[in-house]
């Protein structure tokens, strides 16, 4: 039971990162590799806000959320919008987002240095809970609940709201969307804003959970998140959650069966197999499209 819960909680962290990641991919068909930098930004700025300003964590999260949204808009404007209509927009978008991510990280280093930082121990109540003989922290439970809630809310937004209809139209055909009079630019920006805001908050929660944040944490999770969104099906929000949980469980059980040295081998082997056998992923209804 403890193992199972460990896996679920580990997976919910991956899912938290992956949900924002996959949102942009699903709607705009772009992999935003600056997402890792946003994740680190959220963590480091969150720490700054809490330690320097003495703000409570509950107020810090909305601040980080807003900052993330702003970053998302910037990323869309700088790294993606100028590429619209270019035949190589896919490659170029990958690389422009990597470049912008590097710039963001170096600004973070300028502001906060390269040291590993963390939230003060009292920033979040360290309540322990017990369930069927397994223990976990309140925070872990909260992360799981947030991941599931986010997935449900975002799925609803995309499926039902006016914004979501716009998003889906763009996902299907950006040209048609423009012809229909949709403000493609604004919807893209909004999508990026939501995605990055979630990424930034994920950074805060992640840091609270593991008690460490530095410039590189985003990259450490990014690779796993890539695996997660493919496992679940690129662009699928429930897929990101389920993919995250599967990866978390697979890693935990791998540690207990084949040994921890081969843990990541299991994770990437699983990813590889899924791609070869079912490239559209578990929840991917979409056709595997060419890039």
């Amino acid at each position: 039971m403890q193992l199972f819960l460990d896996g679920i909680f580990l997976g919910s962290i991956y899912a938290l990162f992956a949900i924002g990641f996959t949102l942009v991919f699903g709607i705009l068909d772009r992999l935003n590799l600056a997402h890792a930098a946003v994740f680190s930004t959220g963590a480091l700025v969150g720490i700054e806000v809490v330690t320097r300003w003495g703000v409570s964590i509950w107020l810090a999260i909305p601040i980080v959320f807003a900052l993330g949204a702003l970053l998302g808009v910037l990323i869309e404007r700088i790294a993606f919008r100028p590429l619209a209509g270019r035949h190589d927009a896919h490659f170029a978008g990958l690389i422009s987002s990597i470049a912008l991510g590097a710039v963001i990280l170096s600004v973070l280093q300028a502001l906060y240095g390269a040291d590993t930082r963390r939230f003060p121990a009292e920033a979040f109540p360290s309540t322990r809970l017990e369930f069927l003989g397994a223990t976990f922290s309140l925070l872990q439970l909260m992360i799981l609940v947030i991941s599931v809630t986010l997935m449900v809310v975002l799925t609803w937004v995309v499926a039902k709201s006016k914004l979501g209809r716009g998003m889906r139209t763009i996902a299907e055909n950006p040209h048609a969307a423009a012809v229909l009079g949709l403000n493609v630019g604004r919807i893209s920006s909004t999508t990026f804003a939501i995605s990055s805001a979630l990424g930034a908050v994920a950074g805060v929660l992640f840091t609270l959970n593991v008690n460490a944040a530095n410039l590189g944490i985003g990259h450490a999770v990014e690779l796993k998140a890539l695996a997660v969104i493919v496992l679940g099906g690129l662009g699928s929000l429930p897929g990101a959650l389920v993919g995250g949980l599967i990866l978390g469980l697979a890693e935990v059980y791998a540690v207990n069966t084949v040994g921890s040295s081969w843990r990541d081998m299991v994770a990437f082997g699983l990813l590889f197999l899924v791609l070869v056998i079912r490239p559209q992923g578990i929840f991917g209804g979409r056709k595997v499209r060419e890039v």
Partner: peptide
């Protein structure tokens, strides 16, 4: 596989 899928499968291979 094509496009992003090929990229990620090959990335997984590299990590393996």
């Amino acid at each position: 596989l094509r496009g992003v899928f090929l990229a990620i499968a090959t990335l997984a291979f590299g990590e393996m």
